[in-house]
Nucleic acid binder design. Structure first.
Length: 268
DNA sequence: ATGGTAGACGCTCTA
């Protein structure tokens, strides 16, 4: 049995609970990391997940905005939540998934979107995004025995040329500006993290996880971006068995603008 | 060059 880990920016977990349950039933991930839950902790639909076997539910939410949650059918404990840039937003949740004598340290992230204007001098949201990614340098794979590390989430940056529908037309659009893509790649490499979606799909091949709500026909225009990511520590990279982007979910009734990313590891 | 949609919350913010 491989270990299946999925990540999905759900854009309101309460509104889209039926979609999350459908995804869990159809794809049976061991662990699902959600972002943009937009749900205070005392209103999180924990019981609905426990009912279908996801007994371990870690939540870090706030009213109205942001929020992350990690739900698991394998034993899991909370390690920590971190704040970034001195702002108390709920954007990070680290858990430990137990696999017999081994374990995975799993970081679930929701990086700030950064607003519309890609100039940190005039746009505080963009400044915040750049500073946030800089502070992420502190997130490193675990160095203790029998412990692999995985970092997932909506990082709100599409680092490679083939991560956007048009590299040239996106260079001045927040999510694909050089200061963002270089910042994210520097942070990833500094930690030794492996971009395992791109280990599975050649870097030249278009790969998207998000399509805007603002396009009339998202599928026909296909102006997507790869904003959601799965990274692993180097020891887990050789045991990656499969990776899939569930594009179908963008066409479900009242969808999120992001789709799930599913990864299978031959471990545990 | 512009405006387009969605969700939470409560007359506006974030994405």
């Amino acid at each position: 049995m491989p270990l299946r880990i999925a990540t999905w920016n759900i854009n309101s977990v309460r509104l889209r609970l039926p979609l999350v349950l459908r995804f869990l039933e159809e794809h049976q991930p061991d662990v699902l990391c959600l972002q943009e839950t937009k749900c205070p902790n005392d209103q999180f639909p924990t019981a609905a997940f426990r009912k279908i076997g996801y007994d371990h539910v870690a939540i870090h939410g706030q009213k109205g905005y942001h929020g992350v949650a990690t739900i698991s059918r394998r034993p899991m404990s909370v390690l920590e939540t971190r704040t970034f840039c001195g702002i108390e937003d709920c954007r990070h949740l680290a858990t430990s998934v137990e696999l017999g004598s081994r374990r995975i340290h799993l970081h679930n992230f929701y990086v700030p979107a950064g607003g519309d204007e890609p100039d940190p001098e005039v746009n505080p949201k963009f400044r915040h995004k750049l500073d946030f990614v800089q502070e992420m340098h502190d997130i490193l794979p675990a160095t203790i025995a029998d412990t692999g590390s995985i970092l997932v989430g909506d990082l709100n940056i599409a680092p490679l040329e083939a991560d956007v529908w048009s590299h040239k037309q996106m260079l001045k659009v927040v999510s694909h500006t050089p200061v963002e893509t270089e910042g994210l790649e520097a942070m990833r490499k500094a930690g030794g993290w492996v971009d395992i979606m791109r280990q599975h799909v050649p870097p030249e091949e278009k790969l998207f996880t998000w399509w805007s709500y603002r396009s009339k026909d998202w599928e026909a225009s296909n102006r997507g971006r790869r904003l959601d990511h799965v990274w692993s520590s180097p020891d887990l990279s050789p045991v990656l068995k499969d990776m899939a982007v569930l594009k179908d979910a963008r066409g479900w009734d009242r969808p999120s603008d992001h789709v799930p990313v599913i990864t299978d590891f031959d471990i545990g």
